[in-house]
Amino acid sequence: MAVNLAYHQSAFRLDEEMKLVERAKEHPRYFAPLYERYHEAIFRYVFKRVDEIESAYDITSCVFIKAMGSIQKYENRGVPFSSWLFRIAKSELYQSFRDKKAQRTVSIDSVTLKQVMDDFTDDSSEENRANLLVALGKLKEAQLQLIEMRFFEKRSFREIGEIVGLSENNAKVKTFRALLKLKELFNKKE
């Protein structure tokens, strides 16, 4: 499966990014280059998980306000800075769901949905499509997140691992298990 390569960076780019992070630690004003680099990716990550665009803008703003306020605590672990931002975004999203300020949403395009369905059945009827959505809704949140990131957003296992706090291998194993569970739920329904 083709994955989105924008996340993966060369050692040179990671070094350059760390310099930007160190500069941003001096004053929040210097966060601007990091903001320009990542605000769209974070917005799109949030947007796909909430039903209203205004909620997505609000949550994304909160992510960056929080990131700028706590950048002093950021430690370089040799992974892209964006994984730290994605983790803040994840936590802000779930806080919004708990506070009922946003509705948990899964945004999928029909082509991707059909690709996932092709793994389970040859019959891509409307009924099976509905069954697959029901099965997705029955997954545990952690499993749904893995399926969402791997199959709907085409993220690599390394990136998924860095966002959810797992090793690359662990992310691979857990995603595979989530897919098996989805298949089981889909077949039960069928």
């Binding site: 966060f31 994304t60 948990r104 899964v106 029909s110």
Partner: peptide, 28 residues
């Protein structure tokens, strides 16, 4: 948590729309 909502083929805002709406100065 609330029920999950599924949205198919949702239109996403363009990069320009996001940039206009989310300028760094307002966050700062």
């Amino acid at each position: 948590m609330n029920m999950i909502k599924f949205l198919l083929d949702r239109e996403e805002p363009s990069s320009e729309q996001i940039r206009q709406r989310m300028d760094f100065d307002s966050i700062y």
